[in-house]
């Protein structure tokens, strides 16, 4: 596959009189890792929603595989969310009435055909095979996070978005989760976009952007060579 997976062009989101995102442009290449940093209130979650096709920007265009999504009907946007994008939400967003396994299989269920072997691979890789029949209420934060990662990868997306994946975890668990994310990214050729306020993360990512007051700046010059 050639060309960027995702390209945002002059994305602007306004709520009432205030501008949450101002003219944000961003490109996500295949199989890269990208970190978006920013302090609280910078518009990180809004950017996450816009890039993940969860919200529609006030203006600007978002291209997935070079196709402009701004004119797409909701039906096609849903297909893109299902097949091209995976999410790891800040608060995991697991459905309490479903088991870990069924939660992870949710994106596959939208197509009504489960690829159990792939789920098995994912659960194995994430080391949660023995938790598959448990309900979210009985899982720890790190376990929930791993189920959420499995769900994000269930349909072999081209890009995975993770919103503060370590925000609710203790440093040790956070590190393990991040490692897992990178390992899975490497195994599945998926681009990884992580949104976080944690300034210590940037050294692991190929690209880092900083979002301040709705404006995005590339931080490549500050990147620490490995």
């Amino acid at each position: 596959m050639t060309g960027p997976v995702l390209r945002g062009d002059s994305l602007t989101v306004e709520r009432g009189d205030s501008t949450i995102l101002a003219d944000v442009s961003i490109t996500v290449e295949p199989d890269t890792s990208l970190l978006i940093q920013g302090p609280s209130g910078a518009g990180k979650t809004t950017l996450f929603n816009v890039l993940g096709l969860l919200s529609t920007p006030t203006s600007g265009s978002l291209y997935v595989h070079g196709d402009d999504t701004s004119a797409l009907p909701e039906r096609k946007r849903a297909v893109l969310r299902r097949d091209a994008i995976g999410f790891v939400f800040q608060d995991f967003q697991l459905i309490p009435d479903l088991t870990a396994w069924d939660n992870a299989a949710l994106p596959q269920d939208h197509t009504r055909s489960r690829d159990e072997a792939w789920l098995d691979t994912l659960f194995d890789a994430l080391d949660i095979l023995d938790l598959k029949d448990q309900y979210p209420a009985t899982l720890s934060g790190g376990e929930k996070q791993r189920v959420a990662i499995a769900r994000a990868l269930a349909n072999r997306p081209d890009v995975v978005f993770a919103d503060e994946p370590t925000g609710q975890l203790d440093p040790e668990t956070a590190e393990r989760v991040l490692d897992l994310l990178f390992r899975v990214k490497d195994q599945t050729d998926t681009a990884l976009v992580v949104i976080s306020h944690d300034p210590t993360l940037s050294d692991q990512f190929e690209e880092t952007h900083v979002l301040i007051d709705g404006s995005l700046r590339r931080k490549s010059d500050e990147r620490i060579p490995q």
């Binding site: 993940g52 969860l54 909701e74 039906r75 849903a78 297909v79 893109l80 969310r81 299902r82 097949d83 994008i85 999410f87 939400f89 967003q93 697991l94 459905i95 009435d97 949710l106 994106p107 939208h110 769900r151 269930a154 349909n155």
Partner: peptide
């Protein structure tokens, strides 16, 4: 509504 949000975020169409 959050569950509906998850369904939709993970790609369920409105019709579904």
């Amino acid at each position: 509504r959050r569950v509906i949000g998850i369904y939709r975020a993970t790609g369920a169409s409105r019709r579904r």
